[in-house]
C-alpha cells in the first residue's frame, strides 16, 4: 500500500499553515525586529544592532528586575504547586478519606476559572479595609495580622504566588492522581509484607515510579511560570512600582507605550530562554534513553 497516497499530505496543511503564520512567524519576525528601533512614532525602521539588548542587560535597568521576578515566580510557584499537588494527591488516594471525589472536584475547580476572574476575586478578597480576608482576621481577634496584602512591597509578591498556587495546585493533583493509579498495588503489598513504613514506600516506590509524571508536570509549570501574564495583570498590574512586574507585563507596558522594539526584544529574550531550556530538557531525556 502506498502510504503517501493513502495519507495525503494536504490533510495537515490547514493546521500547519495557520500555526506557521500566526504563531511561528511572529516569533521569528519578532527576533528580527528586536535589532531595530521600531516604534509607533515614526514610520521609518532603522537597524540598531544589539542596542535594545544592551538596554536590558547593562546597568541596573528595570528590565533586569522583570526578568529576575519572572525567574523567581517560576521557581517558587513550580515548587509550591508540585509539593501541594503531590501531597493532596497522596492524601486523596488514601482509602480512609471520605468523599474523595467531592474533595478532588472542589480542589480542581479553580482550574476552570479564568486567571482574570481569579485575579479579580482575590483583589476584592484581599482589599485591606473591605476585603474578606482582613475582616475574617479581625473577627478572630487577630487585628495585628491584618496587612495590605497587595500593596505592601514585601508581601505583594508572595501573595501573588500563593494565589497562583491556589489556582494551579488542583491541576497538578489530578495529574499526579492519574499517575498514582497507574502504579501497580503489588509493589505496595510486597513492601508492606517487608514492614515498610508510609514514608519508606513513598521514597522507594511512589516517587521513583512517578518520576516521568513529575518531570512533565515540572515542564508544564515552568513554561507556564515564564509566560505568566493574566494573573499578574489582573491582581497587581505589575505594581506597586515594579514589585511584581514580569516579562510579559513589561511587554504589554512597552506595547501600550509605543516602544514596540523594546516589547519585541523582551519577548525575544523570553523566547531564547525557553528555547535553551527546552533544548536542555530534550538533550537530557535523550542521554537518559541511551543509558537505559
Amino acid at each position: 500500500m502506498n502510504r503517501k497516497k493513502l495519507y495525503p499530505w494536504y490533510f495537515s496543511c490547514g493546521a500547519a499553515v495557520l500555526y506557521f503564520l500566526l504563531f511561528f512567524l511572529p516569533g521569528i519576525l519578532g527576533i528580527a525586529y528586536s535589532f531595530t528601533d521600531w516604534n509607533l512614532y515614526s514610520n521609518e525602521i532603522e537597524f540598531v544592532g544589539l542596542a535594545n539588548y544592551r538596554r536590558i542587560f547593562t546597568g541596573n535597568s528595570e528590565y533586569l528586575k522583570y526578568i529576575g521576578n519572572t525567574v523567581i515566580f517560576t521557581i517558587v510557584t513550580t515548587l509550591m504547586k508540585t509539593v501541594a499537588g503531590l501531597s493532596l494527591a497522596l492524601l486523596l488516594t488514601q482509602k480512609f478519606i471520605k468523599l474523595k471525589n467531592f474533595h478532588r472536584m472542589i480542589i480542581f475547580s479553580p482550574q476552570v476559572m479564568s486567571y482574570l476572574v481569579v485575579g479579580l476575586v482575590f483583589k476584592s478578597m484581599l482589599h485591606p479595609t473591605t476585603g474578606f480576608f482582613n475582616n475574617f482576621l479581625r473577627s478572630l481577634g487577630l487585628d495585628g495580622m491584618t496587612r495590605n496584602w497587595l500593596t505592601d512591597l514585601d508581601l505583594v509578591f508572595p501573595t501573588v504566588m500563593t494565589v497562583d498556587t491556589w489556582k494551579g495546585m488542583g491541576y497538578i493533583m489530578v495529574v499526579v492522581i492519574a499517575g498514582l493509579m497507574s502504579i501497580s498495588t503489588e509493589y505496595y503489598e510486597a513492601a508492606s509484607i517487608d514492614g515498610a513504613s508510609f514514608f519508606q514506600k513513598l521514597r522507594c516506590i511512589t516517587i521513583p515510579l512517578l518520576k516521568p509524571v513529575l518531570v512533565n508536570v515540572t515542564v508544564l509549570n515552568v513554561t507556564y511560570g515564564l509566560r505568566v501574564f493574566d494573573m499578574i495583570y489582573s491582581l497587581t498590574n505589575g505594581g506597586p512600582g515594579n514589585a511584581t512586574g514580569v516579562i510579559n507585563t513589561a511587554v504589554y507596558k512597552e506595547f501600550s507605550r509605543g516602544d514596540l522594539a523594546m516589547g519585541t526584544t523582551l519577548s525575544s529574550v523570553l523566547y531564547f530562554g525557553i528555547l535553551i531550556l527546552l533544548y536542555g530538557i530534550v538533550k537530557s531525556m535523550e542521554s537518559k534513553e541511551v543509558e537505559s
Partner: peptide, 9 residues
Amino acid sequence: AMPINNVAL
C-alpha cells in the same frame, strides 16, 4: 512551550 510574541503578531 514557546511564548507568543504579541508585538510582532
